[in-house]
């Protein structure tokens, strides 16, 4: 599991059970295409891009993604989810070099 820096944001910050909220996952990742050359060394920078992402909410898979190198550096993934009780939202991704990363936050509906 990598120590890559990432962030999950839920909007609005305060929400009720049953509410549909916006979920964003952001991560510092180079998303290298393998087609760029290093300006100084002239060598090709090897490809390294996220190729799959998964959103889990209390053990249930909500959304999965197949990702290619066209996503921007430090990518952002935004979708919605229906709040369904207290628990944990986990985002897992793997990249083309086999790196795996997981980030979780607590889901705590108010009322």
């Amino acid at each position: 599991m990598s120590s890559r820096k990432s962030l999950i944001k839920i909007k609005p910050k305060s929400y009720k059970d049953g509410e549909i909220v916006k979920v964003s996952f952001m991560v510092m990742h180079p998303m290298e295409t393998g087609m760029r050359k290093d300006k100084k060394t002239k060598e090709v920078i090897p490809a390294k891009y996220i190729n799959s992402v998964k959103f889990d909410y209390n053990g249930k898979v909500i959304t999965t993604m197949n990702v290619w190198e066209s996503l921007s550096t430090n990518p952002v993934f935004t979708t919605y989810m229906k709040v369904n009780g207290e628990g944990k939202l986990s985002v897992t991704f793997s990249d083309s070099t086999g790196e795996v990363h997981e980030k979780s936050i607590k889901i705590k509906p108010k009322g």
């Binding site: 998303m31 909500i62 190198e69 996503l71 229906k82």
Partner: peptide
């Protein structure tokens, strides 16, 4: 997506 998303929306940034 799944029905648990509640809303069919996705946003990102591409090259």
């Amino acid at each position: 997506l799944t029905p648990s998303n509640g809303k069919a929306m996705f946003a990102t940034r591409i090259k």
